[in-house]
Design a protein around this nucleic acid. Structure first.
Lengths: 265, 265
DNA sequence: GAGTGGTCTAGACCACTGT
DNA sequence: CAGTGGTCTAGACCACTCC
């Protein structure tokens, strides 16, 4: 076994035993290199393994720290039905909480929210998903939701609506109206759309450098989920497509499949 | 921007443009270092970025290659109902294909299969999930399914059954009877169990070194799914728990949520 | 300014793969 | 055996953070 692997294993065991504990600082790289009797680059290689595992993170100019446990987000499909059920409640009732709060158990006041709207056109991929021609006008909306107590976003969302659909309610074209109480399903309702089904397609890949930074997961090497969410209305038309990037180390998707009973025999 | 990032970006663009194409070999590290006018370690750092992205892979003593597109596996919950429906068919009917074939579109004859059985006892976590005492006897079963044409396994599965349940049919205690036509749901049926629901909990994390090797995804840094599958029978008892590791770069989970209609108003 | 991690270098040696 | 990637070293310099 290589030196760096042996050192990584030893450090991992120490950290799992709580020495140092979550949030605490490790010794500096030079100190550790001396302690383990290896060169600094080798020591850095060992630390790189633990970084990729999400166990530690480095802050430039400050030190290397054991990552604290983060607010876990459990994401279940019930959120979709729950959001639908709320669409036709009053504004006041809807304003109380949004879907993100349902997942995290956080209060609305703990969450920070930012949105950017931008007109765009359908590329190959989007045209295929929506079933429209390449170049069709779309409205792109980018969201970040963030827990105030944690400073790092919980998700990065890019959502696409058909511009022809959205423009029927001019309020939908202006990001100043976000956060919209009741979410996207309520927005769609204002232009007469009822959703029939929502499809989640979930892939996993390493975070790109910019995503890692945005999600507050130091450097690359940490896994993210890429969720493609396709919403279909009651006429069978695709009305919204979202790409959601979620940090792999703090997100769990949770789906229960109900099976049909065997007929009594 | 750092040199290694600039080089990684340039190489990525070249590969995405098909130069070199899938499966083809890149120049050696020393050659590339000369071409980009950097030291070999810096060149290796640039290549490390692309390896983590799953774009290239290195084979020791041979070279660095652009990774070929792999057989994608789309995993939907319909597989569970489909497997349940087949439980009470005849052996001959069941033998035709298994659930893995359904996902991949491969033929049974393209798939290789290996299983290992081992008695064990419930640790904290398993005891909690099964709702039994710590130390209760379990049967641990480890599976690998592999596409013959690809040599790398499609999934690593560790499944746990209550030993008291499995022993009612001694055939279930012997791995020599694998692959069992009809899968786990059929095995459970032989001891009088009908499943009511199956819960999937999906997490993502970087592959451990041993998993990366087993799944044929060179070195660490590539993301894997960790699926925890919990099967509940019609009496509400947890009868099976599986931990499934799936390569992130070739697996897509696909769940559709059907929403209830608003009552006409 | 002192201390930290991030980048980069130049080179040595080893382990593995192919011929 | 030659050529490849994998490991490891000893050091230089820079960018960042905090006092």
């Amino acid at each position: 076994m290589a030196k760096y692997e042996r050192i990584a294993n030893e450090l991992r065991a120490q950290i799992n035993a709580g020495q140092p504990g979550p949030g605490e600082r490790l010794s500096s790289e030079t100190e550790l290199a001396t302690r383990f009797d290896v060169s600094v680059p080798t020591m850095r290689q060992a630390l790189g393994v633990l970084k990729a595992e999400g166990l530690i993170e480095s802050r430039h100019g400050t030190g290397t720290f054991v990552r604290a446990a983060r607010q876990p987000v459990r994401r279940t499909p019930e959120r979709y039905q729950w959001e639908k059920d709320r669409v036709r409640l009053t504004d006041a009732e809807r304003a109380v909480t949004g879907a993100t709060e349902k997942d995290t158990g956080l209060e609305m006041s703990d969450l920070d929210f930012s949105a950017e709207y931008e007109p765009t056109t359908a590329d190959d991929r989007l045209a295929r998903v929506f079933g429209v021609a390449v170049g069709t006008s779309l409205l792109r909306r980018s969201y970040r939701t963030r827990s105030r107590s944690e400073s790092a976003p919980i998700s990065l969302v890019t959502s696409y609506l058909l511009h022809d659909v959205a423009k029927q309610n001019p309020m939908l074209l202006d990001s100043a109206n976000e956060p919209w109480p009741g979410g996207t399903q309520h927005q769609l309702w204002t232009v007469g759309i009822e959703l029939d089904s929502i499809r989640d397609e979930i892939a996993a890949r390493p975070a790109r450098a910019d995503e890692a930074e945005a999600l507050g997961i130091d450097t690359e090497g940490v896994a993210v989920f890429e969720l493609t969410k396709t919403s279909v209305d009651t006429t069978g038309r695709v009305v919204e497509v979202s790409y959601v990037v979620l940090p792999g180390d703090r997100t769990v998707f949770d789906y229960t499949t109900q099976l049909r009973r065997w007929e009594e025999s």
